[in-house]
Amino acid sequence: MARINPPFKKSPWIFHLNTGGCNACDIEILDALTPYHDVERFGMKLVGTPRHADVILLTGPITRESKIKVIRTLLAVPRPFAVLAIGSCAVGGGIWFDSYATIGGLPNLYEEMRHKYNFEPPPTIYIPGCPPRPEAIIFGAAQALGILKKKVKREVYKED
């Protein structure tokens, strides 16, 4: 896996997008900003509008009600940008993966956006955990910025 080298490597501004998560991931994200973990040393700054964002921190399984708002937010971010899908819910829907009220995680949203809006998904790092520890979030962010290399390889399971 080649190291990615985005223009925002040294100054990633993050925008926090909760799509129906339970809050646990969200407070761990905020925790990463506070003195103990202090991600500002990497130049990260929490911004209030998607217009300024470089990295979208997406939490939650994407509920039916919030779907359209999430789509519009993702379309409003100036390119290039990256997405961190934080928590089991964002990665694959979590415990609500097949509930009537959610669409079951970020991959499903990308699928839909690709068809409907001709949207090419940005580089995405998936960070599982319920909730992931702040260290895990920082590790994921470092991968998205190209500071660290990925340590796992993608493998597709095939039945023999």
């Binding site: 646990a24 407070i27 909730p131």
Partner: peptide
């Protein structure tokens, strides 16, 4: 916006002993 259908999942999919875990995920705080 965060209506995830917890009550329905608790009533249809999970047993008594599994429900506390989904209940804990109602709110992360």
């Amino acid at each position: 916006h965060v209506h995830r259908g917890i009550e329905k999942i608790g009533e249809s999919k999970l047993t008594y002993n599994q429900v506390p875990f989904i209940a804990e995920r109602i709110c992360g705080i």
